[in-house]
Amino acid sequence: MTIRIPMHIDAKLLTLTQWLSPAFPVGAFAFSHGLEQAARNGWVESASDLLEWLQDIMHHGSGFSDAIWIRLANDADTEADVLTLNAQCRAFAPSIERLREAERQGQAFARVTSDVWQVKLPALQLPIALGAAARQEDLPIEAVITLYLQSFLGNLVSAAQRIMPLGQTDAQAVLAKLNRDCIDIAEKTKTAKLQDISSSAFLSDIASMRHEKLQPRIFQS
């Protein structure tokens, strides 16, 4: 049996994959989310270490939190609500580098999507900007969160290849093993609220704080 997918759904998914592509000009390649410091400390030295590190971030740290921020922004009814969420998102940042990471990528995302898709977006933190833009473009929020998380992980795996001995095959194997985590977190956050945002990925947060003084370094975070 042939399954026919309506063209309007195709267009929305293509828009979403374009937004979350490594080629989309938000400068994600410049940030390691503290991974550079973790590798320097000897906390992440192998593919198995990297997998465990990323799973902790996804389920207990910024991955889970970002998924909730995206949902909350997507549910916001007014620009004032979005701006309030953005201020709260900034307040939850565990370090100045994490704050700048989300801020600079969010500003770039808002600028490009506003120019190309004519969505109305002020300068926002990345997960807030994505959630708000997805609402305006009527993109499926489950897909938005799932693909955002995969894109986030893909960037960190790519960063790991530049700072530790990790080959292309092992890198892709790590990313493939995390696909289920992306789906699970999108599902887990369906009914999440602001009070559900927390982080117990302590080493990841500590790494982002220590990275501020790391020299020499490749990444901005």
Rank of each mutant, 00 (worst) to 15 (best):
I70Y: 02
A93F: 12
A159V: 01
E52I: 03
K213P: 12
L16N: 03
Q88P: 08
Q18T: 13
L121V: 04
V112M: 04
P94L: 10
D170Q: 09
I163G: 00
Q220R: 13
L99N: 02
V157H: 07
I197H: 02
I96L: 14
L83H: 11
I3S: 11
E36S: 04
F29Q: 10
S221F: 15
L156I: 07
L35R: 01
L14I: 10
A38M: 09
S114H: 02
R71I: 06
N41P: 05
D138R: 11
Q125C: 09
M1W: 14
G167C: 09
K193D: 13
F64V: 08
D196Y: 01
Q195P: 07
S65L: 14
F109I: 07
L16G: 01
M58G: 08
A108C: 11
S21W: 15
S208G: 04
T113G: 02
A47G: 07
A76V: 08
P140I: 03
S199D: 10
L121K: 05
H59I: 06
V112N: 05
A173Q: 12
F219Q: 03
R71Q: 11
L20C: 06
K188D: 10
L166I: 11
G106S: 07
V157G: 05
L166F: 12
I9Q: 15
W43E: 01
D138M: 10
L16D: 02
L203G: 04
L147D: 00
D10Y: 15
A67P: 00
D181S: 15
L175T: 06
R111P: 07
A132M: 02
T169E: 09
T78R: 13
I197A: 05
I206Q: 03
A207C: 15
R104A: 09
A76S: 10
Q118G: 12
Q55I: 14
E52A: 10
M164Q: 06
A28W: 04
S46C: 12
P122L: 10
H211R: 12
L175H: 14
E142L: 12
S200D: 15
Q105N: 08
S199V: 12
W43L: 03
D184Q: 12
I206S: 04
L13D: 00
H8P: 14
T78W: 11
A108G: 10
G63C: 08
I96K: 14
L85S: 04
L156V: 08
G167L: 08
A23E: 14
N41C: 12
I57Y: 03
A160C: 03
H8W: 14
S32H: 12
V119M: 06
L72E: 06
A80E: 09
L166V: 08
A102H: 08
T146L: 06
